[in-house]
Amino acid sequence: MNKETVLLMGARSDIALALAHRFAKGGNDIQLAARNSNGLIEDKLDIELRYGVNVTLHEFDVLDTTVNELFINSLPMIPDVAVCVIGHMGEQKESERDVQIAALVMRSNYEGPAAILAALANRFEERGSGTLVGISSVAGERGRATNYVYGSAKAGLTAFLSGLRNRLSKKSVHVITVLPGFVYTKMTENMELPVKLTAQPSEVANSVFRAVQKKRNIVYVKPIWQLIMIIIRNIPETIFKRTNI
């Protein structure tokens, strides 16, 4: 890969930082976009020192969709690769009780990411090149009692990415949907996760890095999740509604 510029949105997350290291190791410049981006100064220094690339910090709140164009214009250059890692799980129980809380989950996982990716898509389309990556989730493949608010928002994002890919495939712009299973991150720090089904952020980063190079469409990170989701998607609804998985 030639030296490219990679924009990472939601840059404080473990997955985004792992991506930053992976792409920087490949010699690419990095744009880190996050809320309170000043707090990422140590990470900027670290990545610059380790890999000898340029890292810039950018303030970005995905819910503030009115400033998307301004945000893109403020970047030192339009990136070659843009990855939206932003997500927000919330508490399912609270989302059931409070529509505002549910709305925040929906907006953070679907409306916000879709909006910024759409704005970037138009720039990439105009330029006739680039790769867009959305981090969605297997939770979006079928709604489950324990996290369907988050899942439904991820389902929206997955469908949006699919449509975007379809639209842009004729325009030399590539779109990648990432469907991680479990990942050891801040989001899941207090959960007991099955070791065999859980990836490290660095594994997610390696998969995404390869997917960008090889222009893959859908990435599961751990292959076993593809199989699991085929099974889960195919359980008849009459049975599924009685399960608690």
Partner: peptide, 13 residues
């Protein structure tokens, strides 16, 4: 016990 794994950045050379 306090694991220091998140304080793992190099800051200058």
């Amino acid at each position: 016990t306090i694991h220091m794994k998140h304080f793992n950045r190099m800051l200058g050379f």
